[in-house]
Simulated scan of single mutants.
Amino acid sequence: MDVKGHAAVVTGAASGLGAVTARALAAAGAKVALLDREVEGAARVAAEIGGQAFACDVVDAASAEAAVAAAAAAHGPARILVNCAGVAPAGRIVGRKGPQPLEDFRRVVEINLIGTFNLLRLVAAGAVGLEPLARGERGVLINTASIAAYDGQVGQPAYAASKAGVAGLTLPAAREFAGVGIRVVTIAPGIFATPMMLNMPQEVQDSIGATVPFPPGLGDPEDYARLVLHIIGNTMLNGEVIRLDGALRMAPK
Rank of each mutant, 00 (worst) to 15 (best):
P221D: 10
A210F: 10
S63G: 04
A251G: 11
I231D: 01
D223G: 03
L119T: 13
L25A: 04
L113P: 02
P215C: 13
V212F: 07
R96L: 14
A73C: 10
L227G: 06
D60V: 10
M197P: 00
L198V: 13
V212R: 14
I208E: 06
L120F: 14
I242D: 04
A26H: 07
M196T: 15
A53Y: 00
V180C: 12
A53F: 00
A46N: 06
F177C: 01
D36H: 05
A247N: 14
R175P: 01
P201N: 10
N83Q: 14
A173F: 04
E203Y: 13
L237E: 02
A73R: 15
G126A: 07
K163G: 03
A72T: 15
V241F: 06
P77Q: 10
F54V: 00
M196Y: 07
H230G: 00
A178D: 11
L25G: 01
E103M: 12
V212C: 10
I187P: 01
A33P: 01
V87Y: 10
V128M: 07
D223V: 14
G98N: 12
R37Q: 09
A19Q: 04
E240F: 09
G76P: 00
E103K: 11
R183M: 03
I93P: 03
G12Q: 04
A22K: 01
A161S: 15
L141R: 06
A46W: 02
L227E: 02
R96E: 15
A27G: 09
Q153I: 13
N234H: 15
L133D: 06
V109D: 02
E48S: 13
V87P: 01
P215L: 13
A164L: 04
R226P: 00
G152L: 05
S207Y: 12
L171F: 08
T211P: 00
K97R: 15
A167S: 14
D223Y: 08
G5I: 12
H230E: 07
T170I: 11
R249A: 04
G165D: 10
V20E: 07
Y159T: 07
V180N: 08
R135V: 10
A134T: 15
I231Y: 02
P189M: 07
G129E: 08
A28I: 04
R121T: 14
L120N: 03
E38H: 12
A88P: 00
L133F: 09
A33V: 08
H6W: 05
V20C: 02
A90R: 15
H75C: 02
R79L: 05
L227F: 06
I232K: 03
V184I: 15
V123A: 05
A124N: 08
H230D: 03
A55N: 02
V59D: 02
A55T: 13
Y150L: 12
G126I: 10
K97W: 13
T235Q: 08
R44G: 05
P213Y: 11
A62P: 00
D104L: 11
G51E: 02
M1K: 03
